[in-house]
Nucleic acid binder design. Structure first.
Lengths: 215, 215
DNA sequence: GTTTTTTGTAAGGGATTTATAAAAAACTAG
DNA sequence: CTAGTTTTTTATAAATCCCTTACAAAAAAC
């Protein structure tokens, strides 16, 4: 889930922003002064920063200058509406500049616009991450290569976590086979997954029925 | 030089925009009604479109719907300042939405922001540097010459690092082929890249699917 | 407790897929 | 048209996949 940092010193405006981003189910952290914001930015990984300019201790521009990871998109959100400040904001790394008072729905639309790149079909299981867009599977951040059938089988399992999949169901979905053939093929591929992804404990055999992936 | 299309029916506003973009030495075309704009968009390649919403013949949203190349960035520029229209604009493909009356300098800053994406034309991978503007590829600071297809294929790979590219996807993007032909062409060019750029380890074959460039 | 069924696992091997070099075809520029 | 380059195809070697077999281990049935 995408995470936003809200940097805004006025409590009730911060609250309004929090409510707005919550609408779209974003996670968020809040910061009420510049120093704390900078600390949070450098210590965490945010997908977006909503940044006020006039702040205690450090102002928005100083934060932008001093932050380490320059790739996090920033939307300035400020009452300062003079052209020179807006232009400065946009040139200093801001992806947008919204003046207060703002309309929550417009803010949301502008947030989502900057987030768009990030939308990925991603599943997690234990220390395993699987990204369907890129067709990559990671175990502890390292790419694990899965053969075609293995990959399809794992997708099926992970999409049905904690649900027993019958052998028939598996054969249907991964092998496009309708007949009830007796074969060790499924067993073999289950074995491969258990091996490659350390899932000996997690892919549980349900005798005479099938398999279940569970934590 | 980057070229902008200005779509605005009011002559004097159009003139103001023209003067503004001229300040930054952008080339531009002008369109004063929707139909003409759509025609120009489909027949030319613009780097950015400044699009009014209320226009004769076709409105801005209809233009967006009907244009063929959906990748051209659009900035809406409209007197309509109700939230629902702004949100609609941002969600329908606009990269920004500026309300009239606007400040020329702010407009310019917002234009340059959207143009910037285009400037990011240098990629790095291991000891390889690739500059799209100059169409040069360096391996350890030394220029490596890549034939056209090789170059295009490498650009595709490097823009999709750590993402599996299917053979179909590759054929589509590099060869403009839609059919699923069986051919060894892709293999051959992959081989050339592996050879010329020492990427034997990094361009990994994903059996039955395609290839992935990874570190 | 024994037999039968089911599953785990390793190893073999045929079929499919990819790598590679070399030849043929298609371009390109002069 | 020609010479040189680029791209595609062909042919064969190599690699990979994944299905099967065989036997061990586990579970279920008797």
């Amino acid at each position: 889930m995408s995470k936003i940092l809200i940097v805004e010193d006025e409590k009730n405006i911060s609250k309004l922003i929090q409510d707005t981003v919550s609408l779209a189910n974003y996670e968020f952290d809040c910061s009420f002064d510049g120093e704390d914001a900078l600390k949070k930015i450098n210590e965490n990984t945010y997908d977006l920063i909503l940044l006020d300019i006039m702040l205690p201790k450090l102002d928005g521009f100083q934060i932008v200058e001093q932050m380490e990871n320059k790739n996090v998109p920033i939307i300035f959100l400020s009452a300062k509406n003079d052209v020179s400040t807006i232009v400065k904001g946009l040139k200093s790394g801001g992806k947008d500049y919204i003046t207060k008072p703002f309309e929550p729905l417009e803010l949301l639309a502008r947030i989502e616009l900057r987030m768009e790149n990030k939308k990925e079909k991603e599943y997690n299981f234990k220390n395993i991450k699987i990204n369907e867009n890129t067709r990559t599977v990671y175990k502890n951040e390292e790419i694990v290569y899965l053969a075609p059938k293995e990959y399809e089988l794992f997708i099926l399992l992970i999409k049905n976590q904690n649900r027993v999949l019958t052998r028939d169901e598996i054969l249907n979905k991964v092998w496009d086979i309708n007949a009830q053939i007796e074969t060790r093929t499924v067993d073999y591929h289950i074995q491969q997954l258990r091996k490659k992804l350390d899932l000996k404990e997690n892919i549980v055999t349900v005798n005479k029925i099938g398999y279940i992936l569970k934590e």
